[in-house]
Design a protein around this nucleic acid. Sequence first.
RNA 1: UGGCCUAUGGUGUAACUGGUAACACGUCUGUUUUUGGUGCAGAAGAGUCUAGGUUCGAAACCUAGUGGGCCAACCA
Length: 671
Amino acid sequence: METKPQNFIEQIVDSDLSKGLPSEALRFRFPPEPNGFLHIGHTKALGVNFGLAEKYNAPVNLRFDDTNPTKEDQRYVDAIKKDISWMGYSWHKETYSSDCFNQLYLWALELIKLGRAYIDSQDSDMIAKQKGTPTSSGTNSPNRNRPVEDSLALFEKMKNGDSKEGEFVLRAKIDMSHPNMLMRDPIIYRVINKPHQRTQDKWRIYPMYDWAHGQCDYIEQISHSLCSLEFRPHRDLYDWFLTTIKTEFAGTELLITPKQREFARLNLSYTIMSKRKLSTLVENNYVSGWDDPRMPTISGLRRRGYTPSSIKNFIAKVGVAKRDNVIDVSLLEFCVREELNKTSTRAMAVLNPVLLKITNYPDNQEEQLVFVDNPESKNLNKRVIVFNSELYIEKEDFSLNPQPGFKRLSVGSEVRLKSGYIIKATQVELDSLGNLKTIYCEYDPKSLSGSGSIESQRKVNTTIHWVCKKTSVNAEVREYERLFTSPSPDSDPNVPFESFINNKSLLTKTAFVEPFLLSAKPGNKFQFQRLGYFNTDDDSTSTQLIFNKTVSLRESKLKNPQNQNLIKAPELKPIDAIKKLGKKYIKLSEDKKKTAKQQLLTLSHELALSDLAPLFLTAVKKRGTRAVTLICLSALKSRGVSFSAEAKDFITKAAADKELWLQDLSNKLID
RNA sequence: UGGCCUAUGGUGUAACUGGUAACACGUCUGUUUUUGGUGCAGAAGAGUCUAGGUUCGAAACCUAGUGGGCCAACCA
């Protein structure tokens, strides 16, 4: 019977339902403009709308908001549909704003006839100037009272293509001194002399967003039109148009008057979300395309190795609210790891190889070892891997002068080869430049993994992955870093986001991998043991394997020695100790307070109070430290310290505090 | 010298619509482990922006202030 936490939109829907909105009337819509690819930000809107649809068993229309042929393109329509389908959402109807062009035109005519719209023949600069500013009202256009017939005639001219772009616009006549700038006679139609991808040459006039969106919602009978926060000011206009249409035009009454509600869009750290900027990345070849694995687009995430369910999970964790937010990419990464850990086949791949020779293993001998595909899955499928005297291991898994805490291989130390034997490094061979060329080691023949022998159960520091030199195959492995070096690349309008592009965001390596990976098909996902999760790239073939690193495994800081000094037991400063106790004291129930208080006072006495005195007096000024301060003051008093006027003032005030124990304490101090 | 939105641990979201804060990520500790992963067990971290007010009682309601965001495209 737990009541699940509802987001505010679900609360609104519930409240509408309880006020009599029939549940069959619920209908949502996802309205992308086909001017770019969908990105992770859109998945939130997708999640909100389709999530609601699922919860209330209601349909979602996919509506392409195609009111501006200068920016839109059929290929984006196709890409958007593909991405939504890939996410696993199915829409009820596929609609287009352009489906409503005729109705919108007819209504515009009505609006003119009603005297609620007029043709303005000023240029855009002039119109902008007359709009005023947020803090000062606008002025009426000289054309505002153009006779209806004239406006009608000019509108016809616009429609027929007999006017140039920018020569005339149709404006709604509302209020040039409205506090909401959008209500100052907004433009609702403009001329664009360009064929539209769907209506071709039928129209030369195109409705603006505000004139189209709400009316399309109305025509489609959308009950809740959900959009992002920056559209909040548009709500006034949205409602104005709909009530005007409903109340003034005959025969337009439909059951549902849609409601626009706004939620905060998703922001991700180290990422940009603007379609314009994303398309800049593509056009200037900072990335290989909209589906480059570094892109935050759905198609980029797909190619990177993210799954629909991991993205949906992410969206669910992010929640829906009305305040601006920046979500840490680590949450997204957590969500893929969580899934891929359970589902992906483990494989061994060596990215930075160094040769390992087992000196006591016969040169011409080889054997087959058993490797578990995925220890996390219930059916422990196994496969066979080849083992012989020459292997590759990672350079990082060997150290010539191991730092304390280094658990991997070094001369004289032992590690286990995954699914194989325990080895001990005996010596190394360096090349003329002093670089590590070959590591020599001896293996313990009785230590084979899973053999059950006593030797096989010996504990060694760690297990490392490896690949057999003879049977391994080459693969191109693409590792990615963040595309941007700043957590918020587009937050500063004075600094171009391009300047934060990380030029090391792509690192391509030739790796040695297990031969079974030759059968990997695009989209197959693997955990390369100890390295991370990797997705088989779209361009990968059996003759040229390509893997994209989705995300690394979670890494312990201890793995890198340079991080070790970051880890220190934090020393508890005396002031913190008191604060901490003070907080606990406050949380304690009444009967326990006495002992806690006693502890606190004892602690205070143990401290070097003279040093702390200035700190306490600073704390006097801050709210939230009242209790601490009072307690410390009492400790000071017992040391015979005399109080400043400020401190005395504080104590007096505290005597009137709401909390009895504070009153109590300060009263004692005053005595 | 305007309107609207918003403010809860480092991050994000909750709090049964008024009974002093929960969940997730992240961080840390211990433990298990043939992945320095996973799992398991724990811990630290927030008097809910500030000041008033209403109330027996406020994160929640009211007022003011402060911080942040959006609005002056013939974009959506």
